[in-house]
Amino acid sequence: MMAANPIVVVDQVSKTFRQAHGRGEHRALDKVSLSIEPGQVLVIIGPSGSGKSTLLRTLNALESFDSGRIIIDGVSLSDKKTDLNRLRAEIGMVFQHFNLFQHKTALDNVVLPQVVVRKRSREEAVARARDLLAKVGIADRASHYPSQLSGGQQQRVAIARALAMDPKIMLFDEATSALDPEMVGGILDLMRKLADDGMTMAVVTHEMGFAREVADRIVFMDEGRIVEEGEPGSFFASPSHERTRAFLDQIL
């Protein structure tokens, strides 16, 4: 936990979205800096449009950035020599809308990337997939297609799919926001278990209970900037910034 070498370093990263036809621009990230150490859980909160999802998506280069540096496990994202696809295989991502491959069964969703990206044999990939599906609690749905699964079940498969790549870091982009309320708890429990197992995680969420209990550190973003950060205890008990207070008042 106290390792000196952070696995994620974000240094003065800025990004501007230019709207089509030159109708103004939007500063999505404004000189954002942070770091995550191995085994740490970083929770990013903030109002919608604050840039928290954009920040998360720059970590695996789904979004580009204009200036600054991002270094993942010693590799710079902006280095032209970096093989981004290879790097992404080391970073698991869980999406708000699950994004399971619609033409594949739950099992094949977990098998496909192992075979294609990790070059595992099919038998090996299937064995690993069954193992993970059991671990996330849906072994009995292995042969179902995504359209035959509930949101909560799909998100479990999505987590298994990401874990099958043996990632060094997991990113969660509002993983419970699209779920029916009764499904949220199960997914959060799964994420908590992952954190307890020592997975390095960056989590964008509106679940303050989860943030308080699981996060090692909390970052509050507004208008593309990190307004405040700290350990959950002090962060929730005595936020020092006015905007943080206003935000917490609204949602707690």
Binding site: M93, F95, N99, F101, V116, V117, A158
Partner: peptide, 19 residues
């Protein structure tokens, strides 16, 4: 989201298209 998920899993452009 389909090709985005494939990207996030480390597939290159051809793999995303093909699979």
């Amino acid at each position: 989201g389909q090709s985005e998920a494939a990207t996030a899993l480390g597939m290159n452009r051809l793999q995303r298209l093909w699979y």
